[in-house]
Design a protein around this nucleic acid. Structure first.
Lengths: 224, 224
DNA sequence: TACTGTATAATTGTATACAATCGTACATTA
DNA sequence: TAATGTACGATTGTATACAATTATACAGTA
């Protein structure tokens, strides 16, 4: 069991519940539903062509994931994210990403390091071209690689959970990746990992998230 | 919504599902079930006098909490905690407890600070008397106060989640609180918070968890 | 008008019936 | 004997029926 994830991934793509769960999560994160919008079991079930049972089970999981809030005997509501929540998330992430970077210096595989280098290289290209869509995608992936390279399923799961919120916040604020500056920071983290410099990697990854938060605030979260 | 918790607590004590969830969690944490023991829906349901439906919903939540692992079409199994998991948990906690301590210097209320002082004082008493049961209880409570005093529902929830594992590990290793040394560290953290010294509070709380881990290892996790 | 009680419809909570899946035991065959 | 196929039982997955709860509208009353 030592290789097993404590917080089990929901990967049961082939059960109805799994499909409902994935679909709802996607729809909530993509902003299809308004904040505080009520989700009715029958309506969701009909939309996806399933009964209430798998929908209810998916609801229970989405509740623990923090995406909806269930009021007993009343209903399920899409959760809002307050500005304080966003700040807390970024501050917590800053610590954990630092830890992930440190551990990556100890556990990263050659293949992962290669993908990281490629990621940084590609991001530089797309940054010059102004391809924001691809940049955001690469940014997400960069962090995912680092989570995986940390060699800790526990930490990986925690950070992926938080990343969900990051994606939501980005959609909400319409703020795309930060472009060149963010890339440079990625490159620095990557090099620190490559050189197996744990202290530096942790420091840079930590600061990287703080910078991302600063940028997010400037980009208008405070206004919107 | 700004005061609402993103990761919703499961406080629905009055629904059958809520009761099943709480009961199973308690039983798993208390070690009633062996690692990898299979939990059957009907059996659990009969034991608690409910049908499979609330049991299944509770299972889905316990899965996300990391206490059980559900294999599609097969069954639910109590998750094991590997030595690496324990190490990861403590390392992650060390960062987050540090953050909680720092934030507590900013947000702690007078009542919370008072309870913290009382906690330290009482612990000193029970430590001298060798009351290990009460010491463990006070230790748990000390950390909980700090989580609450952090003023961050996000962080509080994260840390309480991890604390579940800590309690499990303690049961498993039969290692009680560390006694006087741990108390002194608590006192140090408390004073740093009282003096509103964020840097010191974070540093001490961080080290406190690292020390607790060292102690745990010595206490025999490596052997058991 | 403002307040209270009640009937009703909508929705969630739970139980149960049925379908699909998996593991095991046992028979069959080479 | 060893390997393979198959029938059966046990268990989970899903749908549906029924119970409990909630919100709302509306009538009655001061």
């Amino acid at each position: 069991m030592s290789e097993k994830d404590l917080k089990q991934e929901v990967t049961d793509k082939y059960s109805l519940r799994g499909r409902v769960f994935s679909r709802l999560r996607e729809d909530i994160l993509s902003g299809k539903y308004e904040e505080n919008e009520e989700l009715r079991e029958v309506a969701i079930g009909e939309e996806l062509g399933v009964s209430r049972t798998p929908v209810r089970e998916a609801f229970r999981q989405l509740e623990l994931e923090g995406l909806i809030r269930i009021v007993p005997n009343k209903g399920a509501y899409v959760t809002g994210i307050s500005e304080k929540d966003v700040k807390d998330i970024y501050m917590i992430r800053s610590r954990l990403e630092g830890l992930a970077a440190r551990w990556a210096t100890e556990h990263i595989t050659d293949a992962q390091l290669e993908e990281m280098e490629e990621n940084v290289y590609l991001a530089k290209f797309h940054s010059e071209k102004g391809h924001y869509e691809q940049l955001a995608e690469l940014d997400n992936r960069f962090h995912e690689i680092m989570y995986e390279a940390s060699g800790s399923k526990m930490l990986e799961h925690q950070l992926k959970d938080f990343h969900q919120y990051v994606i939501r916040v980005r959609k909400k604020t319409l703020s795309s990746a930060r472009g060149p500056k963010s890339n440079l920071e990625h490159e620095g983290i990557m090099l620190a990992i490559k050189n197996r410099d744990g202290d530096l990697a942790e420091k840079l990854a930590h600061e990287h998230i703080l910078n991302a938060y600063e940028n997010l605030i400037k980009a208008g979260l405070a206004n919107g």
